[in-house]
Amino acid sequence: MFVHILTRLFQSLVTMAAMAVLVFVGVFAIGNPVDLLINPEADQAEMAAAIARLGLDQPMWRQFLSFVSGLLQGNLGTSFVHNAPALGLILERMPATFELALLAMIFAIVIGVPAGLVAGLYPERLVGRGIMGASILGFSLPTFWVGLMLIMVFAVWLGWLPSTGRGETRSLFGIEFSFLTLDGLRHMFLPALNLAIFKVSLVTRLARAGTREVLLQDYVKFARAKGLSPARVIFVHVLKNMMIPVVTVIGLEFGSVMAFAVVTESIFAWPGMGKLLIESITRLDRPVIVAYLMLTVLLFVTINLIVDLVYSVFDPRVRLSESS
């Protein structure tokens, strides 16, 4: 077990290092770092000063070393637009993205698991087929277009829910959150639903496949042979087993939800890291892009590591196969 953790930790570090090299190569070797990292509106003198400051006149290996040491110190450059450390800008917006992604995941489970369960219990009936049809639709709907349609229907036509911003926030541990106020929740509803659509389909499919698999198991028949009520058999015996793969995948998908938040945030003007990224791209604020990239790499590697470790702690089979 301990060896397993160490191996995985090492693998994650290697991945991080590989990505750092890739980013460095992308920014400094292939791209022109002068374009990428220096404000294009700067004049000649400023430009020269900046080149010297960033060490862009140094040989490649020195530049790499200073890039790495910057990384290790958490110094990922300074935003041209905001004239502030890029990392700080991103971290500031992280809670907004985080709470949105979390609510989207909750939607995905709350809608997807029951739908998948029903589809798995009645695969031949109309409900089952209908749910599967809807899930293919969910896979095919582009997130951004669904977002627009949600705004059109619920915000423009019906006027039920707001479609821009975070609404009222309240501070918790010194961080502002929307989910703590009713107005904030109302603001979160549409973007979170939008972000959830694709994952709802995914969870539905997983839950359906899991249900069908579990239903064939002897222990389900044994549970029926014990005279348990159908509710107990389905909600305890089937559901608990079926949730294992669902939870694993949900964990792994959290990163991808954060990534897709870029789209949802720019549609719903949700001030998270994704919206910041798009703004930075359109304003050519490259240091922020590089910082965002490194931060997401870190986030992904961490999520993969955590899911893998949690999984190996909870699933006895993984644990046993590792120790042998």
């Binding site: 991945t15 990163g255 991808s256 990534a259 897709f260 791209i281 490259r286 892009i289 997401t296 790499v297």
Partner: peptide, 18 residues
């Protein structure tokens, strides 16, 4: 593996940003 561990959306976005 490295490629597949990141969502395609993100990779494409960053690539085009650069």
């Amino acid at each position: 593996d490295l490629q597949l561990s990141f969502p395609s959306m993100l990779i494409a976005l960053i690539l085009l940003a650069l």
